[in-house]
Nucleic acid binder design. Structure first.
Lengths: 225, 225
DNA sequence: ACCTGAACACCGTTCAAGT
DNA sequence: ACCTGAACACCGTTCAAGT
């Protein structure tokens, strides 16, 4: 009757790069890394599967754009120029972890290709700034910044990989409790040190461990070797 | 005629867990992470797709067994008890990197689930041994060992992810040269420090950077903080 | 116990066609 | 320029059946 509703009801039919990426992220969030198929994205956005190819040349391009968007969301304002360099890096690392862990299904995609987009470069600049202030020369600052990127992304990837089922991550405390239960089964005869440290190992995927490793890594950058 | 050749010619028809894992690894090596499909594994081993389910309940189980096998191949003998703890950890980290980078298609599978098999635990014990010798108490040794696992796996994952096309990795020098060419395009106005450090960044995926980060991380473990 | 044929519900991508 | 229908060559997994 009213000619304002064009076709079928359901998801808004504003097909665009943004709508596609939003739909992809929503699918990732509920179904995990494999849930963001071209066909499901198209269905979510109310369009035939091949319509997606009007905006992206292939699935890889969708993934790359999504990764770029996630990295671009990191709040550069958490880096307060007035604070010491360690605190700035810590704030950045915590913000990145918080944002990525909120989309566990997207994390494997981050590690699936080179991170060479503008958002990644911008984060790299922030790190290089902080490390220059720490007194590192240009070469050491570059090596240190990559060491940090490796640590941060590695920790986030392992944290997410620890949870088998898709969907939002349970609170940290619950995940640690589940790990503690699992580590109770480690045979102490074969792995004595592991069995003895089981309670600490249960906390590997938590914030305390994340900061412990980060701070030790930062300390290593400014220690005579 | 001769009744020694039972059926068709082609791949030996010794179906078994081992044959399946070997076929999967071979497929991974030539076609990348997505190439090890159940159907292709079955074809390579000369069997109907669903025959694989006699040995593994699902594809995830195949992947887990393959990961366990790869981690189990790490040569514990590279850890010479007579050498200082840093050297032992370095040897282990280099051996693991060498073995995993030889199968780039398998690396994404490593990060796709928890590493809680016996081979992973055995490597963890080696780390805990070395870190205890470094003077760390049980808790610090555990935190440090996980920091190392994160660093090593993160570095290997990013190194492999840097190469888009499947198949064996080109020699390190070639990959670095390709990165150098790519970094030449970074706009110096927007990313001044990145552009200035482009030559170092080209070497991020190399052995020198791997050892730099590893040694700094180790140094951070024994620095007063 | 071990394997097969056939089927189911999926994939990504291409091509010709329609507006 | 943007979207669709139909098709192609794939997936993982299940089920009933055969030996």
């Amino acid at each position: 009757m009213a000619d304002t509703d064009r076709r079928k009801p359901g998801p808004r039919r504003a097909l665009s790069e943004d709508a596609i990426l939003e739909a992809a992220l929503a699918l990732l969030d509920v179904g995990g890394a494999d849930a963001a198929s071209i066909r499901r994205i198209a269905a979510a956005v109310g369009v035939a599967p091949n319509a997606v190819y009007t905006y992206f040349p292939d699935k890889g391009a969708v993934v790359r754009a999504l990764v770029e968007r996630l990295l671009g969301e990191v709040d550069h304002a958490v880096v307060d120029p007035g604070r010491p360099w360690q605190e700035r890096i810590e704030a950045l690392a915590l913000d990145l972890r918080r944002r990525l862990v909120a989309h566990p299904g997207a994390v494997p995609l981050l590690l699936s290709g080179p991170m060479d987009g503008p958002a990644a470069l911008a984060l790299g600049e922030l790190l290089l700034d902080a490390l220059a202030e720490a007194g590192l020369d240009a070469t050491a600052a570059a090596r240190a910044s990559y060491t940090l990127i490796v640590y941060v992304l590695g920790a986030i990837a392992l944290e997410v990989a620890d949870v088998p089922q898709p969907g939002p991550l349970a609170p940290e405390g619950e995940r640690i409790a589940a790990r503690r239960a699992a580590f109770a089964a480690v045979p102490a005869e074969a792995f004595p040190r592991t069995a003895a440290a089981a309670d600490v190992m249960a906390t590997y995927i938590g914030t305390e461990q994340y900061l412990w490793g980060l701070r030790r890594t930062l300390a290593g950058f400014v220690t005579p070797i």
